[in-house]
């Protein structure tokens, strides 16, 4: 599904160039549940931003379902991400002035989907996540776990092929975290490819494969040497 070849990302500050991703070669197959781990500053979130096509200052090759993302312009990438990728954030990043239903509807509002179809999709999603009763509440009226649930619902409403999660349980207590991770597992079992960034070993066990980054290099991959080039 995803193929990265010699992917690199750096930041220039004055005369200094800081590398956050170095010669990443990585393949992720459909249906995998990949966990990305590593110390702070290893490049985990940067890798996730590249996969989410939010960042386009990287070099190298990136294929998504055979499509050469590296050859696309910004608009084409945004269009691809809008259709095929969903993202869940550590800080939920719900819009405070929108209700739960409106937050979930937000990605659909950026597509050309008729109103009745959108309403149906939102209703199905609310039902699927058991939050119908909360549809008219605002994020400030929900607990952390409920907010993250809404964040996940928003990320999957348009049935993306790939779900990216950046420290999804970072702001939750253990009970809530467990519920969220169980949900990710269910989604993965239903066919969604999941890539999560986490510091938690407990969360990592929900995945089927673990990748470790250090100083921007791909240090370890439990999938074996044929799936990723590992720096010794």
């Amino acid at each position: 599904m995803i193929e990265l070849k010699n992917l690199e990302r750096s930041y220039k500050t004055g005369h200094t160039e800081t590398w956050v991703l170095r010669r990443i070669n990585l393949t992720i197959r459909e249906g995998e549940f990949v966990t990305v781990m590593g110390p702070s500053g290893a490049g985990k979130s940067s890798l996730l931003n590249v996969l989410a096509m939010l960042d386009d200052q990287w070099k190298g090759e990136f294929f998504f379902h055979g499509e050469a993302v590296h050859a696309m312009n910004r608009k084409q990438r945004a269009d691809l991400a809008r259709r095929r990728v969903g993202m869940v954030f550590q800080s939920y990043h719900l819009l405070d002035d929108l209700t739960v239903a409106e937050n979930i509807d937000l990605p659909l509002s950026y597509k050309d989907i008729p109103k009745s179809e959108r309403q149906a999709l939102v209703a199905d999603t609310l039902d699927r996540f058991n939050i119908v009763g909360k549809k008219d509440l605002f994020p400030s009226q929900l607990s952390g776990g409920q907010q993250q649930l809404v964040g996940i619902a928003r990320a999957v409403i348009h049935k993306p092929d790939l779900l990216l999660a950046d420290e999804p349980t970072g702001n939750l207590h253990s009970e809530q975290a467990k519920e969220i991770m169980e949900l990710f597992r269910r989604l993965n079992e239903q066919g969604t490819t999941v890539v999560q960034v986490t510091h938690s070993e407990v969360n990592a066990e929900y995945g089927t494969r673990t990748i470790e980054l250090r100083d921007g290099w791909l240090y370890r991959d439990t999938a074996g040497p044929e799936a990723a080039e590992v720096r010794a």
């Binding site: 939010l54 945004a78 991400a81 993202m87 990043h93 819009l95 937000l106 990605p107 950026y110």
Partner: peptide, 16 residues
Amino acid sequence: RAETSIRMALGAQRRR
């Protein structure tokens, strides 16, 4: 700006 960025991350085009 955070709100704007979230919207962009969720697929909003600049024009929109």
